[in-house]
């Protein structure tokens, strides 16, 4: 095999489509039963950020997730967009893990690869939104971290990241190995192509168990997870007025919206 100059790893998580998830008003748990699964939106941007570096530089992109086998089609989708390789860390023992064992396990897999230059993670997930895993992995593999990034470039052993902060943009330059966490909607993810999809199906997915990455089963799972989710509450519902407007009343409606400050009319 040819040694490629850069090895980029993209971390993804499969999440229920947020539009289809709601908090059960009785039990206060998340009802995901109606939801279809998607790739966590920020992770699509993380993959795109990695692929943009691959467009410029000789690089290998590996996507990785720790999840049950249902995540396989989503890893396939990432390869169909341009990732070269996909790793599924799947083991019954990890069920119920919070962000600590998740970061630990993902970090162990990255260490096993040995040659990783940049790790891309989403800024946060749409289902539990802790934003821990990227920074956690950075800590466990001993890498520099650039969080809240919207654009990433690589040159000569250094990563330059544009970080979007509350009151401006900060540009940081850190040496590899580095972890960058990518903001949702920070770029326009490319679509899968037939060529890449065929190649992905021929290549298949690499599956690792905990034993493969030398993590003892009692380091992970619910019992090794310090977090306890005690309660979940839905946002108070704000019922809409549900008024119906006849065609003739549209000018009046616009007047009202202007008066109440919802919209503003500007001369051209």
């Amino acid at each position: 095999m040819i040694e490629l100059a850069l090895h980029l790893v993209v971390l993804i998580k499969v999440v229920p489509d947020g539009k289809e998830v709601f908090v059960d008003p009785v039990t206060f748990t998340l009802n995901r039963s109606m939801a279809t699964n998607i790739i966590n939106p920020a992770d699509e941007n993380a993959l795109e950020a990695a692929l943009q570096i691959k467009d410029q530089t000789d690089a290998k992109v590996t996507v990785m997730t720790m999840a049950p086998p249902f995540a396989e089609p989503f890893l396939m989708e990432c390869m169909s967009r341009g990732a070269d390789e996909a790793v599924l860390i799947s083991d019954r023992a990890v069920a119920g893990s919070d962000t600590y064992p998740t970061s630990l396990t993902v970090a162990a897999a990255i260490k096993k690869m040995g040659d990783v230059d940049i790790v891309f993670a989403g800024e946060k997930t749409s289902d539990s939104s802790t934003g821990h895993v990227g920074p956690g992995v950075a800590e466990f593999i001993g890498a520099e971290l650039a969080s809240y990034s919207r654009k990433v470039t690589y040159e000569n052993g250094y990563v330059t990241a544009e970080r979007e902060l509350e009151n401006g943009i900060e540009e940081v330059r850190i040496p590899t190995p580095a972890v960058v966490t990518i903001l949702t909607d920070s770029n326009d993810p490319r679509r899968a192509t037939l060529r890449k999809k065929i190649d992905a199906m021929k290549r298949g997915i690499i599956t690792w168990s905990l034993a493969d990455i030398n993590i003892p089963a009692d380091w992970v799972g619910l019992r090794s997870s310090p977090t306890v989710v005690k309660k979940m509450l839905p946002f108070p519902r704000k019922d809409r007025k549900g008024e119906k407007i006849e065609k003739e009343k549209i000018p009046e409606l616009i007047d009202n919206l202007v008066k109440s400050g919802v919209i503003r009319v500007e001369a051209e």
Binding site: E77, S80, T193, I198
Partner: peptide, 9 residues
Amino acid sequence: AMVASGITV
């Protein structure tokens, strides 16, 4: 058969 869905020829 090899199936590629989500792809427009």
